[in-house]
């Protein structure tokens, strides 16, 4: 730390006479040789001396003579009010301390269970709208009359394999090669799967055309 910085850091101690002997000597010696620090110190000193002209208004003898009497009255008033405030607080606190601990734990567990059920129903159960839509899907309705069995079976089949059937229905096995259809999985499985899969929609279609189901 430079001497000027060190000196300026001691300005307050110097003004208020809080320096030790070593600091005093250093400060005095530095101000003798440094005009800058000296003028800064004088400025600060003049400000503090001016502020020292402030006079605190003295409230007067009567104020001080009656001070403790006013204080005693206030303490008495506070002491009167304090028990009332405390009894209200104590009563409030007592309602909680009188209930056993296990009751709070059971209540907390119950709340957790209810919240868990609520969240589960919100997240995992399908909505009423979804249920209604699902129930309206043709594949799920049961045939109401024996005569509609064919239609029902056909509708089920169509729903289950719409895309494939689209190709199959439009496919004529008499003139076309079934293996031309891109059914790699079916081709890898038992050879019977492919023919049955291919023949079923054709037979259904023929029956439907005969009975006038479509």
């Amino acid at each position: 730390m430079s001497d000027c910085k060190k000196c300026q850091s001691l300005f307050l101690e110097a003004f208020y006479e809080e320096m030790n002997a070593e600091q005093k000597q250093f400060f005095k010696d530095h101000l003798l040789v440094c005009e800058k620090c000296k003028s800064k110190f004088e400025e600060m000193k003049s400000t503090l001396q001016f502020m020292g002209k402030r006079v605190r208004p003295e409230p007067g003898k009567i104020f001080w003579d009656l001070y403790e009497e006013r204080l005693a009255q206030r303490i008495e008033k506070e002491e009167i009010l304090q028990p009332e405030r405390e009894s209200g607080q104590k009563r409030f606190a007592r309602t909680f301390t009188s209930v056993p601990k296990w009751a709070y734990q059971a209540a907390a567990a119950l709340v957790l269970i209810v919240v868990g059920i609520f969240i589960g129903r919100m997240v995992f159960l399908p909505s009423a709208q979804e249920l209604q839509q699902a129930s309206q899907q043709p594949g799920l309705t049961t045939p109401q009359q024996p005569g509609t069995e064919l239609v029902h079976r056909t509708q089920n089949y169509i729903e289950r394999s719409k895309l494939i059937l689209l190709a199959l229905v439009n496919f004529d096995p008499a003139t076309e090669d079934p293996y031309a259809l891109d059914l790699p999985f079916q081709q890898q499985r038992l050879p019977t799967l492919n023919p049955r899969m291919i023949s079923t929609p054709s037979s259904l279609l023929k029956k439907a055309l005969i009975t006038g189901g479509f």
Binding site: S9, F11, S39, K40, E43, M44, S46, T47, F50
Partner: peptide, 17 residues
């Protein structure tokens, strides 16, 4: 304080460390 009172004290405002 020095800045506030400088005009009243009659001295220009100078830096305090």
């Amino acid at each position: 304080l020095r800045k506030e009172l400088s005009s009243y004290m009659g001295n220009p405002v100078l830096e305090v460390p």
